[in-house]
């Protein structure tokens, strides 16, 4: 509490013997150098551990034969997300909305596959087949059946998943948690 309890310590500034001065200077530089190296040696791996990003692997999730889908109908499809960690439990059970659009002029099956996460803040949207709208319970974002933004705060339409049809079966690329700058169209972060 007493600010001036001790007289000022002048030992550092008092002139030192020449030979000792050089040695002390060297020691200081060496200490700073080794200290920096030591800090980097511990710090960099640690930062890498915490902030490091595993390469996002591409998995394809089978969502059943195309013949199971009715044209112009949207359904919730659940699956065990292969992007999970082994101890994820039920939280690895993810879902997407699948809408079968029928065949295009080249007789290729066309699908719309949406993330359930609202493009506003990620809450789970609910599909209402009667009004053909997706409603978000959090801030009231609304989307049309084709995923386009209908009303409310979302800055864009629903996130589209990447899909393909292999041997008559619909497959979806395992979706990561989608955000505004990291949509499901991307394979890697950033």
């Amino acid at each position: 509490m007493q600010q001036n309890a001790n007289p000022p310590d002048n030992t550092d500034t008092s002139p030192a013997p020449r030979s000792g001065g050089a040695r002390r200077g060297f020691l200081k530089v060496l200490t700073a150098l080794l200290g920096t190296v030591a800090t980097v040696l511990v710090g960099v791996p640690f930062m890498g551990y915490v902030f490091g990003i595993r390469k996002r692997r591409v998995y394809w999730v089978n969502l059943g034969p195309v013949s199971d889908y009715t044209p112009q109908q949207t359904q919730l499809k659940t699956f065990d997300n292969p992007l999970k960690q082994p101890w994820d439990g039920m939280t690895a059970e993810n879902a997407v909305y699948v809408r079968y659009e029928g065949k295009d002029e080249d007789q290729r099956d066309q699908f719309l596959v949406f993330s359930v996460n609202c493009a506003h803040l990620g809450c789970p949207v609910s599909w209402f087949p009667q009004s053909e709208l997706f409603l978000c319970p959090c801030h009231g974002g609304v989307y049309y059946a084709d995923g386009a933004h209908a009303s409310g705060p979302p800055p864009r339409g629903l996130y589209h998943c990447v899909w393909r049809v292999r041997r008559g079966e619909l497959e979806v690329r395992a979706p990561h948690y989608p955000t505004l700058h990291d949509t499901l169209k991307q394979t890697s972060v950033g």
Partner: peptide, 8 residues
């Protein structure tokens, strides 16, 4: 409306 889960 349909109430069955499989019909959404």
């Amino acid at each position: 409306p349909a109430f069955a889960r499989r019909l959404e």
